[in-house]
Design a protein around this nucleic acid. Sequence first.
DNA 1: CGAAGGATTGACATTTGTCAAGTAGAGTGG
DNA 2: CCACTCTACTTGACAAATGTCAATCCTTCG
Lengths: 247, 247
Amino acid sequence: MLTSASHAEAPNAWTVRRTTAPRPLGHALDDCFSLAPVRQLKAKEPLFAEGDTKSNIYRIESGAVLIYKILNDGFRQIVSFAFPGDYVGLEMSPLYTYDAQTIAPTRIRALPSVALWRRAREDAAIAGEIFETLSREISDARRHFLTIGRLSATGRIATFLIALAHRNERKSLDAVDIQLPVRRSDIADFLCLSVETVSRSLTELKTAHIISLRGWRQIKLIDRDALERLAAGETMLDQGCHLKRAA
Amino acid sequence: MLTSASHAEAPNAWTVRRTTAPRPLGHALDDCFSLAPVRQLKAKEPLFAEGDTKSNIYRIESGAVLIYKILNDGFRQIVSFAFPGDYVGLEMSPLYTYDAQTIAPTRIRALPSVALWRRAREDAAIAGEIFETLSREISDARRHFLTIGRLSATGRIATFLIALAHRNERKSLDAVDIQLPVRRSDIADFLCLSVETVSRSLTELKTAHIISLRGWRQIKLIDRDALERLAAGETMLDQGCHLKRAA
DNA sequence: CGAAGGATTGACATTTGTCAAGTAGAGTGG
DNA sequence: CCACTCTACTTGACAAATGTCAATCCTTCG
C-alpha cells in the first residue's frame, strides 16, 4: 500500500496458467533475489541518488528506505516508503528517477538490473510477477494522488494510518497499537502537508478519541471505523462525531 | 504526458537509452493492435465501467477518451485523458479499475486481454514494450501527483498547458496555438481544482500576457518560458512579472 | 541532568472552495 | 441571418482550510 511491493496475490491473467496449484503465489521474483548478496546500511545512508545510472534493483530485507525527490524550491516530496519485502527500482528506466535513503539500519539485497531483465526474458513467470508489481505500483500511485488531491488533511492522515494497519495485518503484527516507522515531517512530505498540519490533525483525532498517542511514535487506533470513514472522504462533522470539542 | 501512451519520447530518463539508435522505437505492441477490429463510438459513450471484467485492452485510433473514477462523495476524479495512439487498460488487473467514456466521436481498436498476455509471454519484444509503457505510466502518475500536491492552481494549469504543447509537438501540430481538447470542468477534475479556480487561473495568465484566449477552446501560449517557470513551482510574484495588475 | 532535535500550539496570511449572479459561445428553428 | 436557448464559462463575495512564522513544550539520548 505504501510502496511497490512483493505482497503478491492479485488474481489475474498471468496467474491463470498456474490455477491448478493451490497457491499460485509467485515466488519466482523473490527467488531471483534470494541468491543476491546482502548489503548492510546504517540509518540515513543514501542508497542511490536521482540521475545515477541504474545498476541494481533492490529488495529490502529489514529496516526502512525513503524514496523521494528534492524539488526545485527545496521541498522534499516523498514518493514512497519501502519496507521489508518491497522492491526498489523495479520500474524500467536507465537512470534512477528518485533519491533513496535509509531511515533506519537496513539490510538489502542488490540484483544487477541487466541480470533481472535477462531472467525476465527467459522466464515468463518472472516477467509476469514484474508486470503484477508494476501494475500494483500504478494503482498505488493513482490511489495516492486521489488521497492527496481530494482529501482534507485529516482524511489523508486517516488514510495513512489505515494503510499502516493493513501493512501490519499482512505481516501479522499488531494492527491496533502501531509503531510509527517515520517522523512527522516524513508523513508531511509524503502527504503533501506541512508538519504543523500533520500535528494538528493528529491532535484532532486524539481529541475525538479516534486514536491515542503514546510518545511520538506509538499510535493506538481506537475507532478504526471512524478512520475508514474519514479516509473515504467523510468529514469530522459528517459523522455522529462524539464530542465535537468537549475539552 | 497526459496518459499511458505509446507516444514515446518525453524529455526524461527514457530518452537516454535510445540515444544511440535514432528510432529503436518498438512497433511490436502496435502491430498486435493493427490486426484488431475497429470500433466506432459516438461522443459521451461509455467504453467500460469500473468493476467490469476486463475483456479487452484498447488503443485509441482517433477521438478522445476520459479515464476517471466517481468518488464516494459524488466527485469525479479524472485519472487521465487518452488520445490517439494511447493504450487503455494495459495495466494488469482482472477488472477495470476506472470508468472510461468518450468525449468526442472516437474510433478504437479492441484486443482481448488474454490474447495480448499470451503474445507477451511468447514474444519478449512485446513484453518489453509493455514494461516500458507501464513504467511510463508509473512515472506519469507520480509526476502528476507532484503536480497536484505541490503546485498552486496557476502552477497546475501551467503544467497542463505545457503538457499539451509537448503533445502537439510530438504530433507535429501547432504547439503555440493550441486547441483545447476538453472543457474547463474536465481540466478541473483532472487537476483537483474547482471549475471556478481553473477559470480564475486562466484569466490570471491572460492578464499577465502569458497566454491569450480565443473563444473557449483556443489558447495561445505567448510566454512559454513563464509557463515553464510556473510549472516548476515559481509563483507569479517570483518572476519579474511584467505588469502585476496593469489593468 | 542537560542538550538537541522533534513535536505541538497559537496568531495570522494566503489560497482555494462554495454559492450566487451574470456573460459569452454554439446550436437551432424561424 | 437573426433571435432564442442551452450550456459552458467567468466573476464576485465570502467562508473554510491550510501554510507560515514564532514561541513553547516534549522526548530521547548522551
